[in-house]
Design a protein around this nucleic acid. Structure first.
Lengths: 339, 339
DNA sequence: TATCTTTAGTTAAGCCTTTAACTATCGGCT
DNA sequence: AGCCGATAGTTAAAGGCTTAACTAAAGATA
């Protein structure tokens, strides 16, 4: 592999000149620039990133941190969509993605992760940070590294989807359809800030329409299909009069639909089911799932953009993306004879 | 951040000693080891990876390369499952994942990717390499970097799922159920080696049972749900007598089911649909999808294992993982009145 | 003409770790 | 006593890049 020195020799200049020309420093004649560039092309020179990192601290590597929660990480299509947005923006700017998936414990993230952060390899961090018990960004903050959280981290630049509004949209939609016997499939809100906000959104809208959120039966899952199925079975068994299930993610909703059908309920005729996330496959379930879109790729893209603003010394304001209701076939007006 | 020198001073030894103690070189007294380790702990020393990379070439970073094909990459849950397997193994060994998603052109992968490979940052490569037109591993091979392909690359260590067998399993299953009016939803086999092998598997098994593969109607999609839906509409319109659809991935199968239902066909009573991949959500479609499991996480895990064998100077043999048929509710015996 | 600026480029130090080559000590052996 | 091998640790170079500080020449100004 040719080095800066090789290029410098070939072009008949010093290494400093080559380095500066390559980083577009002013004060060079066109002639010198051309000489250098030609040498670079001829030798096929590519800068050694390790050397550059050591010397300048610029590694062009961003850690994208998706903590393990419930092991659901690699099973959640939403993660992939967020990653898509991040990738698009980072690649556009010539940055690389180092994917980190720390395991969380009460004592904090695992040491593999903390070592990575402190290794000098990472120029910035984008993290999914919505787990109250253990923040992956705490150590990043201590080191004063540029970072953006996707979620509800209080002390960092952050972006999030408007979970409260999303919850409201779910509830509003189902109430408009005439339902009032409504079950909720969620997860433990103490494990996930987003869930907490969505639930508050549900509550807010319910009470605004004179329904008691407290009395709505609820079962918790762990975001998986199976857990949604189980939760639905429990709710429909204990409360056979339910006409609607609001699920806080699509996979649980799909599990719920399956269970409902297995229990002899027609969806949406006997039971409306609403999901949350608008994962790509939600349109392919039968019936296609009514759900809340939270612009996952956009969330990632903007997080990346914000990180570059931080690089530039700016202080990007916390952003909140609106959600939208996607009406498909899994929800419909409550049947008259249910009244 | 403390450096080696700081640790050396604190322990009262040379930097060489610290470095060697940390990498477990022999010839040191317990006393020295202890002194060094204590200094490391007290200072919270973490080695600077950039410096280590520059000095020794060991970066502990593996590029995981998922080329963009059809833009389907970030929409394909299977990708995530493979990544899961890779991540598990790499993390276990203290390695990091640099996620690279090159765009392919006829001239080869984009320059951002080629620069990354030649940057000195990467210690090894694991790549999804199943696109005949442009191999992402060619440049890696030229540089003689350790690499493992997941797919059909001829010149590199590689692992793959037994696509031929998977095709056979699909066809065998549907024939056993009494079907002989069978449609195929695939994609352009010239764009994907796996598809080619699956189709050959279908053909092989069909002919073994005296059916003409050539006469089976076929439509191509691009792996997306929509394209599966379109393909199904086309096939069912042009060939209303079809009783089964073999789809070469789950998403197209789910699209096909939806279309079939919209066209008034009951699945599986009027039409059996079989998928391929066994993505997590295939169990949640209605009806749950009969499909072929290709052990995606295992594929990733073994690829990583093989890469470490290459690091150790071994020459791992090409591996082929068997597939299994997962029978769910989207396939059933052909109805008698269809004969 | 002498002085100051701007432009154009060079020199050399520094980033932190690894590792080849070297020194020094000590017990064991002839 | 003299030599050897094993043990324990040190010195210093190397790895490739960036950048502060410096030089030199050309142009502008008084």
């Amino acid at each position: 592999m040719p080095t800066l020195l090789d290029v410098a020799r070939a072009a008949g200049v010093s290494t400093a000149t080559v380095s500066k020309v390559l980083s577009n420093t002013p004060y060079f004649t066109e002639a010198t620039r051309a000489k250098v560039m030609q040498a670079v092309d001829e030798l096929g020179y590519v800068p050694n990133l390790a050397a550059r990192a050591l010397s300048s601290g610029k590694t062009h590597i961003i850690a994208v941190v998706f903590p393990y929660v419930y092991d659901a990480l690699f099973t959640d299509p939403l993660v992939l969509r967020i990653l898509e947005g991040i990738e698009a923006e980072l690649t556009k700017r010539g940055y690389n993605i180092l994917l980190s998936t720390p395991r969380l414990r009460e004592s904090g993230p695992d040491t593999h992760y903390t070592r990575l952060i402190r290794s000098g390899y990472i120029e910035g961090v984008i993290a999914l940070d919505s787990v109250p018990m253990a923040s992956v960004l705490e150590i990043v903050r201590q080191r004063k590294m540029p970072a953006v959280a996707i979620g509800y981290h209080p002390n960092t630049y952050s972006i999030r989807s408007d979970d409260h509004q999303g919850g409201q949209l779910q509830m509003e939609h189902i109430i408009r359809l005439g339902h009032h016997k409504i079950g909720i499939i969620a997860s433990d809100e103490s494990l996930h800030f987003s869930i907490e906000h969505r639930l508050r959104g549900l509550q807010h809208m319910a009470e605004q329409h004179g329904l008691s959120y407290q009395q709505m039966p609820r079962a918790n899952g762990d975001f998986s299909i199976d857990s949604g199925a189980k939760a639905a079975r429990q709710l429909l068994t204990e409360h056979p009069d339910l006409t609607a299930l609001l699920c806080l993610n699509d996979r649980m909703a799909m599990g719920a639909i399956q269970t409902a059908q297995a229990m002899g309920r027609q969806v949406p005729d006997d039971l409306s089911v609403i999901g949350y996330d608008n994962i790509p496959l939600s349109m392919a379930s039968s019936p296609a799932l009514t759900t809340i879109d939270q612009q996952a790729p956009e969330l990632g893209r903007i997080a990346a953009t914000m990180l570059f603003e931080v690089f530039d010394g700016k202080q990007p304001a916390t952003a909140t993306l609106p959600t939208t209701l996607i009406v498909r076939q899994s929800s419909s007006h409550v049947l008259v004879n249910n009244y």
